[in-house]
């Protein structure tokens, strides 16, 4: 008994050692992220000298009079991430169904286009997008950034959802049609429940992607009205008068918390997207 249990452990001990050594910097970084957010070490010192909640002052007072308070910014970020993910899901659900099931002109072109767009470095489009938004009057508004972010996320979303639709047996739809249901009814009450795990995963992933988006809000909505947490942090660290790393780390902790919570709650559902289908 003990022999069989001990041998695998012995055999991989050097792997564990290598992996520990390689992950150590990450662990140290995370550790100091947390420690420094509630402590104020002397400049240049490594170890904190005392417990200090001063870094979290951004929660109850404004750190920069020229910018909106943290709660306004958090609200903006939440609106940005949730509206983006909801619209990505709404469009992906319908577009992916069409690509998976319906036979329409240029279907192959759209499929190929999806892959190209998915692989395309979107940052190269930023100037064109800037001009278009300005032309539409959506520059420096949250709506404009949402629109752009949702559009850029769509290829990924459609591709994922198409994979889920492809696993639904077509006989289920045919049976539904035979049962007298309209195509819409069949989609809504028979097919959609089968792809629901994919939908949940996509919703979470695109929400997190929106939550952490930085470049688009920075370029397309630099004004005070449409600040999100990423640009807010950027402003804090870029500010010349107050380069307060403790504050920066505390905001970082604040910014990351929803992400960690979402991951902890939805781990299993997120795994679905790689499993790529429904079971049972």
């Amino acid at each position: 008994m003990s022999r069989t249990a001990a041998v695998p452990g012995l055999r991989i001990w050097h792997l564990v050692a290598v992996l520990s050594a390689m992950s150590a910097p990450l662990v140290i970084m995370y550790a100091f992220q947390i420690i420094d957010s509630v402590a104020s070490p002397a400049p240049g010192a490594l170890w904190p000298t005392g417990f200090d909640l001063n870094n979290w002052r951004f929660l109850w007072e404004s750190v920069d009079s020229g910018r909106p308070g943290i709660w306004q910014v958090t609200f903006n970020t939440f609106v940005f991430a949730s509206v983006t993910s909801l619209s990505v899901c709404a469009f992906s659900l319908t577009a992916a169904y069409a690509l998976s099931r319906l036979n329409f002109p240029a279907r192959r072109f759209f499929l190929a286009g999806l892959i190209v767009l998915h692989a395309f470095p979107t940052i190269t489009l930023i100037i064109a997008i800037f001009i278009i938004l300005q032309y539409l009057g959506l520059y420096d508004t949250l709506a404009g950034v949402i629109l752009v972010k949702a559009a850029l996320e769509l290829p990924f979303g459609i591709w994922i959802m198409k994979g889920f639709y492809d696993t639904v047996p077509w006989e289920i739809e045919m049976a539904g049609v035979q049962d007298g249901a309209s195509r819409f009814r069949v989609w809504w009450s028979l097919v959609l429940p089968q792809v629901q795990p994919g939908l949940a995963a996509l919703l979470i992933i695109s929400f997190l992607s929106g939550w952490s988006e930085f470049v688009l809000p920075l370029v397309l909505a630099p004004g005070a009205g449409a600040q999100v947490l990423a640009t807010y942090m950027n402003a804090v660290i870029a500010s010349e008068t107050t380069q307060d790393f403790g504050l920066f780390k505390a905001i970082g902790m604040f910014y990351t918390r929803p992400v960690i919570v979402i991951y902890l709650i939805f781990q299993k559902r997120l795994m679905n997207i790689y499993g790529g289908g429904t079971k049972g």
Binding site: P169, E171, I172, M174, A175, G176, Q178, A181, P193
Partner: peptide, 19 residues
Amino acid sequence: PAQRRSVKVVFQNYALYPH
């Protein structure tokens, strides 16, 4: 259209609605 014909199919894989 299939919806308005009074005909039903039993498919090879039964096509039951799993949910």
